[in-house]
């Protein structure tokens, strides 16, 4: 199970998010280096809760502020709106954006300007703006470098992690040993094709 926690063990923020321990208390060293923090709690009903070591999650950022992270998370929810998908998964997009921002000053500036622009539209805090208006703002930013950066990052990061695999129903690396003897051809709502069109299952 991946959760968006970034620990000391992941200084560059490049490896997959590290699984968290029980309710996450970011380490002192981590907090000292963090530029911002995003936290959340998985819903009790979440399918992901069963996978997670803890219902609480936290993302320490190394280039973005807490507010910037929160705006980017909200922006991404508008880009790829899955009402039942946990913020913890969207936070992985913020994690990736934060990682890019810490590695590249131009990217950091693009993100900072984008968030500032949104805040300016929202009279200081875009997060306080009504959801339908946020929606209009997102559409109006289409084609800007900020939008392109967030969208192209999000379409990869949002759908490329174990929590997303569990949510959307993809096996991912669970298939590495093969489905032949576990779950192969398990679709029951259609008849099996005739033997001539298919082939025998090799003996285990």
């Amino acid at each position: 199970m991946e959760s968006p926690v970034v620990s000391d063990r992941d200084p560059a923020g490049t490896e997959a998010p590290v699984a968290s321990g029980a309710p996450i208390a970011p380490t002192r060293r981590g907090l000292l280096h963090a530029t911002g923090l995003l936290t959340g709690t998985l819903a009790l009903s979440s399918a992901l809760a069963a996978l997670a070591p803890s219902r609480s999650w936290a993302l320490e950022m190394k280039g973005l502020s807490s507010h910037q992270g929160a705006v980017l998370l909200a922006f991404t929810r508008h880009l790829y709106p899955h009402p039942h998908l946990e913020d913890a998964v969207y936070a992985l997009v913020v994690k990736e954006l934060d990682s890019k921002a810490s590695a590249d000053a131009a990217t950091k500036t693009t993100l900072a300007h984008g968030v500032a622009q949104l805040d300016a539209i929202g009279s200081g805090d875009w997060l306080k703006r009504a959801k339908p208006l946020q929606e209009v703002d997102v559409v109006s930013l289409q084609g800007t470098p900020f939008f392109t950066l967030v969208r192209s990052t999000a379409v990869v990061a949002l759908y490329n992690n174990d929590m997303a695999f569990a949510h959307f129903g993809y096996g991912g690396k669970k298939g590495n040993d093969g489905y032949l003897y576990k779950g192969f051809n398990d679709l029951k709502w259609l008849p099996n094709p005739p033997a001539a069109a298919s082939g025998p299952i090799p003996k285990a």
Binding site: F184, N185, S198, G199
Partner: peptide, 15 residues
Amino acid sequence: IAGLPGNNNFKVMYA
């Protein structure tokens, strides 16, 4: 050489 066994995706296509 025998054909490969069909999977779920094939079952839908065949139907």
